[in-house]
Design a protein around this nucleic acid. Structure first.
Lengths: 229, 229
DNA sequence: AGGACCCAAATCCAATAGGATTCATCGGAA
DNA sequence: TTCCGATGAATCCTATTGGATTTGGGTCCT
């Protein structure tokens, strides 16, 4: 039954779909920090009942993107302060270094291929931005997603579900951080990021394990440097 | 107003309290893997409405202790298989080594004190078990909690909220793993665990950074060894 | 003018009702 | 005996309701 399948898929997607919508708005900085997220308001806007909205917001609260106070509802979390940015980069270093090393040892060839492919896609989004006359929102969004996807390759190929799920939470914060940062600028750090990614991919392709780890560390420290000045 | 505070605390605790109750039942293996968790049933049993129960179950699903299928509700997750146990230990190695190292460098003195204190508490729970004639449920529970608390010291003193929250999820699985394992035995690995913890605390107390990390690694590998035979 | 108080609108929160789906049991037919 | 379909109970899921709380604005008093 087509209708049945559609119904089931829609039901299944209900909570997940709402989560995705709110997640996108949060990571793209559509809402200001401290802004209230009304459960009933979101339900009305999305034409659903408050119940699935509540469920979606619970999972977003656990990821740290929104905060909750009893009887006061949810508000958009404050952007990360200096200490939190350092901690986030530090945590990413821990997890991503471990993941890269494990992916390298488990399946070097596929890692090299996937990184090259993800890097190509990333470069193409950057070129689209450079060809456009101004910073288009959708293009920036695609660029950041390609960036995230590059890093996710480590986790996917490390094939450790616990490391991978831990990294998802970090990636959400990193993603939001990028967008907040980009909003206050008229220029992105395209060249630096792509070159650092290229270094990582190249070292992996050379089958240089330690060199790849060092390139990854240099990249994340570079990110921190560019963010914190 | 005492009544107001009580009310507010109770409201605040509602979702959290339910989460805690179900979490305890899951980690202590009170329910068999695959058993269904009825939302309405839990609500009736706990004398609350289904709404806060749903919220609590969402967060438990994210931690991986229960699984969810649309239109079919929640079931207790299957115990970790061999590969997952290896991955869990591996992930704990990554996170706990990093945390121990950071705690060591940031505040060695307090780390040494806290580890000694946590270890003492752990030893006392073990002694209570050894003095009792049989494996009492509450004693075993206290023992495992003291074990977990010892490891949590690394994370607390590493003072990185991201690493700490990542470890919480791992600790939940580890906790459940311990209980499942203990149920199939008449004897715990008290001596080995305490000795390995003692090694870690001693190395830290000697201000031996690398030695402490090696002791931690040896401990986690020992855990895996004892679990997987 | 500035601050405190009060009232109303909006919101959160839990509870309840009703439609839809799933699961298990039972009865009948091959 | 075994397999299949139907029926009923239990459950999930969404929508709605009502009480409690917070918030914002206006007014009054100092």
């Amino acid at each position: 039954m087509t209708q049945d399948e559609q119904l089931r898929r829609e039901r299944q997607a209900m909570r997940t779909e709402i989560h995705q919508i709110v997640f996108d708005r949060l990571t793209t900085n559509m809402w200001a920090p401290g802004e209230r997220l009304s459960i009933d308001g979101l339900a009305r806007e999305l034409n659903v009942s408050p119940t699935p909205v509540r469920e979606a917001l619970v999972s977003l609260e656990l990821s740290g993107l929104i905060t909750y106070r009893a009887q006061r509802g949810y508000v958009v979390a404050q952007p990360l302060d200096q200490v939190q940015i350092d901690d986030l980069i530090d945590a990413r270093l821990v997890v991503e270094r471990a993941a890269l090393s494990r992916a390298f040892r488990k399946n070097w060839q596929e890692l090299a291929d996937q990184l090259a492919s993800a890097h190509d896609a990333h470069v193409q989004t950057a070129e689209r931005i450079q060809r456009s006359d101004r910073l288009d929102y959708g293009l920036v969004r695609d660029y950041f997603e390609a960036d995230t996807e590059f890093h996710r390759q480590f986790l996917t190929l490390a094939a450790n579900e616990f490391l991978s799920s831990m990294h998802l939470s970090l990636a959400a914060h990193a993603h939001r951080m990028r967008h907040i940062w980009a909003n206050g600028r008229d220029r992105l750090d395209l060249e630096e990021t792509l070159e650092e990614h290229n270094q990582i991919a190249t070292r992996v392709n050379e089958r240089n394990h330690d060199g790849a780890l060092e390139a990854l560390q240099a990249h994340l420290l570079g990110v921190r440097q560019r963010f914190t000045g």
